[in-house]
Nucleic acid binder design. Structure first.
Ligand SMILES: [Mn+2]
Ligand SMILES: [Mn+2]
Ligand SMILES: [Zn+2]
Ligand SMILES: [Zn+2]
Lengths: 154, 154
DNA sequence: TATTAATTAAGAATCATTTTCCTTTTGATG
DNA sequence: CATCAAAAGGAAAATGATTCTTAATTAATA
């Protein structure tokens, strides 16, 4: 007897547990639909859109509505278990693997999103706080351009 | 006889001329409505919203429609004469004084936006290009928190 | 099993922005 | 100055992502 679904890699597994634990601690139920959303967030590094998450949840639970996906994301956001990348013109994208703020490279053609580690980000946030007088709580640092694939094709 | 309107400061005046010149070079007409939008953009450091710009234009030209403001902003964006700060949840804000990308501090309570000079921004963009393999064309670097006023009140 | 609260589905509503379509204005030309 | 074509403006409808509302379903637990 073979597995129908490939087992999630351990790192993804760990994130699923972190997220379910966060929900439990907040007194929230782990429903099948929520678990499906969690798994997609923990297993995907493409920074999926709501629509993309919904497509995948519907495969497993065909009656699921978009609103449920939105609500689950709002809930996870409030627990800092997912990072929302809010774009004005293309709708939001979500990162469930690395839920704290970090910089992103965004392809203007195909929408691919990469998140390489960048040094000096925290220093920059502190410098911004110092110079502006604002208390800085979070940031969204987006660099827009063309991904390697689209550069070749362009 | 006194002036009804305060004369715009020279720096603002220079920006108005730059913008009108850019429109002319693009073969676009300088209509009264467009000029009104230009003046507001050149004279305001609050990073006004569309709504805010509209309010002020309507004072001078009461029949102006929101669509005209949107169309003018789209035109100015295409000429790189205004910088759009696109926020997913609060609508866009515009900077006509400094139309090239630069970092901002955004108050989550009152919506105030500051733009102190920050060093090492270009280095960071280059580092992002190097590490991601993307060709980076522009960026939007937003730091969210509380402005000095709202810190006191909170 | 009964009680209660949480969650869900489905569709309506919202809100910023864009589009459509018609009217007005503009600038060139005679 | 009169005429005309093109550009721009105005009003309202359309759009699209997101949120809200309501009623039905489900889960927790007494
Ligand atoms: Mn990321
Ligand atoms: Mn600015
Ligand atoms: Zn690409
Ligand atoms: Zn404030």
């Amino acid at each position: 007897m073979t597995r129908r679904q490939p087992a999630p890699p351990e790192q993804s597994q760990r994130r699923i547990e972190e997220m379910t634990e966060a929900l439990r601690q907040a007194g929230q139920r782990i429903t099948p639909q929520r678990l499906a959303v969690l798994k997609i967030l923990a297993g995907s590094s493409e920074h999926p859109s709501v629509e993309r998450i919904y497509e995948q949840v519907v495969r497993e639970f065909p009656t699921t509505s978009l609103a449920t996906v939105y609500k689950t994301l709002t809930l996870l956001k409030s627990l800092d278990q997912v990072l929302e990348l809010g774009f004005a013109h293309w709708g939001s994208r979500y990162d469930g693997k690395t839920p704290h703020p970090h910089p992103h490279a965004v392809c203007l053609i195909c929408g691919a999103i990469a998140d390489p580690e960048l040094p000096h980000v925290e220093e920059m946030a502190q410098e911004m706080a110092r110079r502006s007088g604002y208390r800085i709580d979070r940031h969204q640092l987006d660099f827009f351009g063309l991904c390697p694939d689209c550069r070749k094709k362009a």
